[in-house]
Amino acid sequence: MLKLRNVQSYYGNIQALKDISLDVREGEIITLIGANGAGKSTTLMTLCGVVPARQGQVIFEGQDITAMAPEKIVALGISQVPEGRRIFPYLTVTENLDMGTFLRKDPKGIKQDMDHIFELFPILAERRNQPGGTLSGGEQQMLAISRALMSKPKLLLLDEPSLGLAPIIIARIFDIIKRINKESNTTILLVEQNANLALKVADRGYVMETGSITMTDTGQNLLANEDVKKAYLGI
């Protein structure tokens, strides 16, 4: 479904991605783990077209999207929940969700999906007229995921959904991620620093270090791997 081939990206003159190749197949949950500054978020931003790749290729469903504008990539069915959630603070909860449907033209389907979201997250329904900025961290994360789902993505990119949240909330968020994957067959690429948690839900994982991928295996095998244990699981 998604292929990255020898992708290199830069911020100005600083190379952030040295040579990234990875594959995501339809229906999978793939995780990308690694330390701060390894280039995980940059990988997501590159495949969304925000930080365009200088070299290499990004291919989505057979189509080369390497040099495409971000809004065109979204139209193909890739949606990102970026790091730090990036809720529009002065838009209401409903308006934030509306923005997720920006490219859709089926008012009925939008209405249905909105109701479905409010069923899934009753707290968002309760706060629907409140500005996004007034929500708690966990509520904002739910809103960010919901906003991304409103565009009906085929591939959902999640950047550190556990960041700054209480363990109980994290557990709920991860349950929801699994549910999204199963119920609507949405493929998921999950970037996490919380390697333990991420590898447990993932079919396969990639380990990143300073702009390169150093290891790849199934989630289970990576969990059992001695190097991964030492470096990322703190065991």
């Binding site: 990036r86 529009f88 603070p89 997720g100």
Partner: peptide
Amino acid sequence: GKAMRATSQDQVMAALLGINV
């Protein structure tokens, strides 16, 4: 109009939702 407000609050996020900034 909503897209204008969204863009003024966070351009990158607006682009990530398919808004042509």
